[in-house]
Design a protein around this nucleic acid. Structure first.
Lengths: 164, 164
DNA sequence: ACTTTTTCGACAACCACGTTGTCTATCCTA
DNA sequence: TAGGATAGACAACGTGGTTGTCGAAAAAGT
């Protein structure tokens, strides 16, 4: 036995702190490239948070409360994001004739365009990764990540990083 | 040739948008577990941003300007973070006798304790990944990420997500 | 040695994005 | 029909960024 005692962790060939940094840098790199490309394609205003919100709104629209639940934030925060999307021309709010309380947030054609372009850019970026890494290694990477991440949805409350 | 034409991207077996989500979820999962464990070990106040800042301060200390450069944020933002670390008891500021302008931010024993505990938890978490995935696959994952992320340092300006 | 330029820290104003709490209107149900 | 749950608006606040300005101190150029 070389170093499998139960005291200090055995033979960490690599420091553990690098893993989250690499994951974040990878995420950050993709997002930055996406938005650089979107800016080039006529959408210079979008921010990552808007992209996630629009994805969550989807083609069918959503109310602020629903959006908040999907994004893992409060309905007030979701409402503010919707305000911003409205100002930027990516979404509109409409009354729901069936329920006078609800105001459905729907994407405008411009918003749907961002969504479509984003999907295309994401695919293109993934293809670049596949070309650099090899398709099967990228699949492995994705599979491994899928194993390790909790199945719960993706929370986007990056403001206070949790905690009050 | 099955699908290597240069038109539309060939046979995207997987949608590209999942990759960044998985990367972020992996990062988020590790960070959340780290802070849950740190809270359990007597540091319930720490936020991810503080951890990164303390890492950047290091054992030798740093000035606000240096800290800002290391973190990729303005010196004012770094100064605010230092204020917060000071309030939380993780850092202190001291005059530099050699340069009356500089005020060196140094970690307190409590701050160094967070750093040490964080390193241990990161190692432990990485060991969990290695156990679940297999050590060589985890190494592959890290290597692949290292290939894809730009060599430039890790920017932590998560507030406005870039842009004004 | 003396001016000019750079750097540092502080202060202020502002913005983005989250939080809680409260309030009213509306819908659903017992 | 009364009561509870839900939607959205509004306010106050916290945190973490950003710019811009300023004075003091160090460095650099004559």
């Amino acid at each position: 036995m070389t170093n499998d005692a139960q005291g200090t962790p055995p033979a960490q060939d690599r420091p553990g702190y690098e893993l989250p940094l690499l994951l974040f840098a990878g995420f950050r790199s993709i997002i930055d490239q996406l938005h650089a490309e979107l800016a080039r394609q006529g959408h210079p205003e979008g921010r990552p948070a808007h992209g996630f919100a629009m994805q969550a709104i989807g083609r069918d629209g959503a109310t602020a409360s629903e959006l908040g639940r999907r994004l893992g934030v409060s309905k007030q925060a979701a409402g503010k994001t919707a305000d911003r999307l409205e100002v930027l021309g990516y979404a509109v709010r409409a009354d729901d004739p069936a329920d006078a309380r609800r105001k459905v947030i729907r994407l405008t054609p411009r918003g749907l365009d961002v969504l479509a372009k984003s999907a295309a850019v994401f695919d293109e970026l993934r293809a670049q990764w596949a070309a650099a890494l090899g398709p099967e290694r990228l699949r492995d990477l994705e599979d491994d990540l899928r194993v390790m991440v909790p199945p719960s949805g993706f929370r986007l409350d990056v403001a206070g990083w949790f905690g009050p």
